[in-house]
């Protein structure tokens, strides 16, 4: 038994190294100077320069990409949770005919290839004049994150004892009152987990952002990073700096909320 644990620990260490080393290289690159980045063979350890961060901020407008991403990801998270909490409560608590069908239909949506939605959504947004607007991007994001949110929230709501709401309703709360005053605070961790996962999805999404946001002023971070172009050479240092900025909050989220993310992802997947 002990030997098994040692092997597992060694293997886990190996997986950690594989997972972190490539990203660490990118972070190291972001602190180099232009000379160090284009040295052949590479300089492994940076002198510790902030040159690329400065240039990403001033010449590539990094801050406005960050701001757009915050608006879109924040807006998506808020809308998805508002719609998702209601739907999940109905599915978990109220007697619904055809409940398995509805859950299955939602699961189906999360499997649609984006390309099959892209043309129609683009045309609908064009007709509404919503290309290059925040709401134009938030709408498809909300649609695509709803299934995940509803699955997670439904599984959290189902675990709360029914007696809680019944007591609240005896005390004169309506159903909605019971949901808002009793269930939501207790399901807080579940709501928070769904929020983290939806936020990460919206922060990272690239395909729809690329189609819908063609004007620089409204582009999100992934689009900005994918389209970074230098005048003569690839601006690797600036890309590395912008990538570090885009990823640092996510890495922080993962290390702080590892347990929640793991339970959320497996609630969305395995309990189905």
């Amino acid at each position: 038994m002990r030997r098994g644990h040692l092997i597992a620990a060694l293997a886990a260490g190996g997986f950690c190294l594989l997972a972190l080393a490539p990203f660490a290289w990118l972070v190291l690159t972001s602190f180099k100077t232009q000379l160090e980045v284009t040295a052949i063979p590479p300089t492994p350890w940076p002198g510790g320069s902030l040159e690329f961060y400065r240039s990403a901020l001033s010449r590539y407008g990094l801050m406005h990409f960050v701001l757009n991403s915050l608006i879109v990801a924040g807006g998506t998270t808020a809308c998805t949770l508002c719609l998702g909490v209601g739907a999940a409560y109905a599915l978990a608590r109220l007697r619904m005919p055809g409940r398995p069908w509805l859950m299955g239909a939602l699961l189906l949506v999360s499997m649609f290839p984006q390309i099959s939605l892209a043309g129609p959504i683009w045309r609908m947004l064009q007709a509404a004049g919503w290309l290059n607007t925040y709401q134009g991007l938030i709408i498809p994001y909300v649609t695509l994150t709803l299934p995940l949110a509803v699955w997670i929230l439904t599984s959290y709501f189902s675990e709360l004892p029914r007696e809680l709401e019944e007591a609240a309703m005896l005390d004169g709360c309506g159903r909605l009152g019971a949901l808002v005053r009793v269930i939501l605070p207790l399901a807080g961790p579940g709501v928070f987990t769904a929020a983290i996962l939806v936020f990460i999805y919206a922060w990272n999404e690239f395909f729809f952002a690329l189609l819908i946001m063609t004007r620089r002023a409204v582009q999100t971070l992934p689009v900005g990073i994918a389209l970074f172009q230098g005048q003569f050479t690839m601006p690797w240092g600036e890309i590395a700096a912008a990538s570090t900025v885009a990823t640092a909050p996510l890495v922080a989220l993962v290390f702080i909320f590892q347990r929640r993310i793991v339970s959320g992802l497996s609630a969305g997947a395995v309990k189905g």
Binding site: F15, F23, L221, P222, I225, S243, F255
Partner: peptide, 19 residues
């Protein structure tokens, strides 16, 4: 360790691609 192996999953795919 669990958090560390989750890092690639959380990184934006565009960032992983550039990396």
């Amino acid at each position: 360790v669990r958090a560390a192996v989750l890092v690639p999953w959380a990184i934006p795919t565009v960032v992983a691609s550039q990396m």
